[in-house]
Design a protein around this nucleic acid. Structure first.
Length: 150
DNA sequence: GCCAACGTTGGC
DNA sequence: GCCAACGTTGGC
């Protein structure tokens, strides 16, 4: 899952109570479907910093609450407000994530790109913008090794 | 700051 | 249903 560290970073996870956050603000239908339908309790998540210097995979999190309505969509003061949504007309969903580990060695995008073991990874596709992506178990395991994950 | 890729909107 | 215009994402 991607995040801009300016808005939410792996260090913000460390500061959060129980290292847990609501992953709100996703406003893309494909990503919404994954949040709502596919992400299950205990699923592991790689945390990626986009628009960062350098862009990098920076940590490992897990799903601690499965998809449920994202109330920021009917909060007029929210940047993520979406007219027409309400508790009775839910459009956007979020999950809760808990950080399991901040990587000792974040893996910068250029390193990911040059690693043949990661060929075909969606993140590395040109023009890949989806903020929630699935990662194959082989790629996932390889990334954990690169990161020196515990 | 540039711009390619992508998603959404809305006229027709 | 097509597609041009527009807005956003995000690497560089």
């Amino acid at each position: 899952m991607k995040t801009e560290p300016e808005s939410w970073s792996v260090d913000d996870f460390l500061k959060a109570p129980k290292k847990t956050t609501h992953w709100d603000g996703v406003r893309n239908y494909q990503a919404r479907n994954m949040l709502r339908d596919e992400m299950k309790l205990g699923h592991e998540v790689l945390v990626y910093h986009s628009n960062a210097e350098p862009p990098a995979i920076v940590g490992l999190a897990e799903v601690v609450r499965e998809g449920y309505p994202d109330p920021s969509s009917w909060d007029k003061s929210s940047h993520y407000f979406d007219e027409g949504t309400s508790p009775d007309n839910v459009r956007w969903y979020m999950v809760d994530l808990r950080l399991k580990e901040k990587f000792a060695q974040p893996i910068p995008l250029p390193q990911l790109r040059e690693d043949p073991q990661l060929d075909g990874m969606e993140l590395l596709r040109k023009g890949s913008r989806l903020s929630v992506q699935s990662v194959s178990s082989a790629h996932f395991a390889h990334i954990l090794r690169l990161a020196g994950a515990k």
